[in-house]
Design a protein around this nucleic acid. Structure first.
Lengths: 194, 194
DNA sequence: TATGTTATTGACCACATAGTCAACAACCGG
DNA sequence: CCGGTTGTTGACTATGTGGTCAATAACATA
C-alpha cells in the first residue's frame, strides 16, 4: 500500500551507534547521524523520533550485544566457570587498552543522563542488572564446582565484576596500557580465591 | 594602577566546578557559568579564556582536592594501613550511593575528551597516576605491616583500586544502592587477603 | 490506471550558543 | 587630580543546532 523504506532499521541503528560511541549523545550532531546513516533528517524522525530516541535505540542494541557477548564468553563449556571468567576479564583488558579507546554507550548514557528519572539512566541500570545476572550465573556454577568459596556472596560479586569492568574501561580510555590493565584484571580475580 | 578584580579566582573556579559536575562540559552553557560565578562573560574570558580552559582549571582543582582527600583518608595513624583502605572504600561506597549521584570531573573529562591528545585526557591520566601513587604508598605500608601478602604487586593493586572506585562511582550513578555498593567494596578488599 | 498511504528530499526556521566589541568604571602612581 | 592600565558591563554577532514543512516519489490495492 505505502511506499516502502529504503533502509533497514537495524543497519541505521548500528551506524548511529557508531557515531554515538565516538562522540557521545550531546556532541553527536544530527548531521553526523545523517551522514553516517545515509538517510535524511525527516526519515530519521519518521522512523525514530529524534536524536535522543535514536540513542535509546542504539543503547538498547548495545545492551543486547554486550549481554550476548558476555553470555557467550562465560557460557561455553570449553573450560571451567572460573577459567571462563578469567579469560573474559583478560579479553576485556586487551579490548579496553586497544587503540580505539571507545566508551560503551552504557557508560556514556550514565554520564550524560540528567538524573535518576532519565530513560538513559533507567535503561542503563537495567542493563547493568542484566549483565550482573550473567556473571551471577557463572559464579554460581563456579561455586557448584567448588572453584570459589562456598560462602561467597554471588550477588554482590556479580555486581563487583560489573564495577571492575567499568573501571577498566575508563582506565583504558585514560591511556592505561595493556600490561597494566591485564595485571589489574588478574588482581580483580583474586577475590575469588578459595 | 589598574582596576582591581571584584572576584577571587578560586571561588570562581569552585562555582564553575559545581556547574560542570552537574552538567558536564558540553552540556554546561556559558550562561550557567555566568549565573553560577556571578561575573560577566567578558570577565570570564579575561580571566580564564573560555569554557574549556575554565573546565581544565576546575579539573585541576578537583584533582588536587581528590588527591588530598584520599591522602588524608589513607594517611592517618589512627588505624592500620589495611583498615584505612577498608574505611576509605566504605566511605566511597556511601558517598557514591548518595542521593546527589554526581560524577567527578575526572570521569567526565575522560568521557568527554576527544582523544588521547586532548588535554582533558592527559590531565586526567596524570590524576589517575597520582591517585594510584597514594594507594601504592598505603599498600606498601600494609605490606610492611604484613597485612597483605609479601608478594603482592603494589603497583597494579594501586591501579586496581582506582579502577574499582571509578566503577563504583558509575554504579552509584546508575542507582545501585548503598548496601550493594558496600558489599562490592568489601568484595574488592578480598583481593588483599593473605 | 486512479487512489490512498507512507517515505523521501531539500529548503526552511526559530533558537540557543560561544565568543566579541566598544563604551565605561575603578584604581593608583605621578 | 590626571592619565594610563585593567576590569566590567551589556549589547551584539555569527554560527551551528535540533527540528519542521510542503512538495514529490514509490508502492499496493482496487
Amino acid at each position: 500500500m505505502a511506499r516502502p523504506r529504503k533502509f533497514v532499521e537495524s543497519d541505521v541503528v548500528s551506524s548511529a551507534s557508531e557515531v554515538f560511541a565516538v562522540h557521545g549523545l550531546a556532541a553527536a550532531t544530527l548531521d553526523d547521524l545523517v551522514r553516517a546513516t545515509g538517510l535524511g533528517k525527516q526519515s530519521l524522525y519518521n522512523a525514530f523520533g529524534g536524536k535522543r530516541e535514536l540513542f535509546l535505540r542504539a543503547l538498547s542494541e548495545d545492551r543486547e550485544e554486550a549481554t550476548r557477548a558476555v553470555s557467550e564468553a562465560l557460557g561455553h563449556d570449553d573450560a571451567s566457570p572460573l577459567e571462563r571468567i578469567r579469560g573474559h576479564l583478560l579479553t576485556m583488558a586487551i579490548e579496553f587498552s586497544g587503540s580505539d579507546r571507545r566508551i560503551s554507550l552504557a557508560t556514556r548514557a550514565l554520564v550524560e543522563s540528567t538524573g535518576a528519572e532519565d530513560p538513559l539512566s533507567t535503561a542503563t541500570k537495567a542493563g547493568i542488572e542484566q549483565l550482573a545476572g550473567v556473571y551471577a550465573q557463572c559464579l554460581e556454577h563456579a561455586r557448584e564446582h567448588k572453584e570459589i568459596p562456598a560462602d561467597a556472596n554471588v550477588q554482590s560479586l556479580s555486581v563487583y565484576f560489573v564495577a571492575v569492568t567499568r573501571g577498566m574501561e575508563l582506565l583504558g580510555r585514560a591511556g592505561v596500557g595493556r600490561s597494566v590493565l591485564t595485571a589489574v584484571a588478574l588482581d580483580a580475580l583474586r577475590v575469588l580465591r578459595t
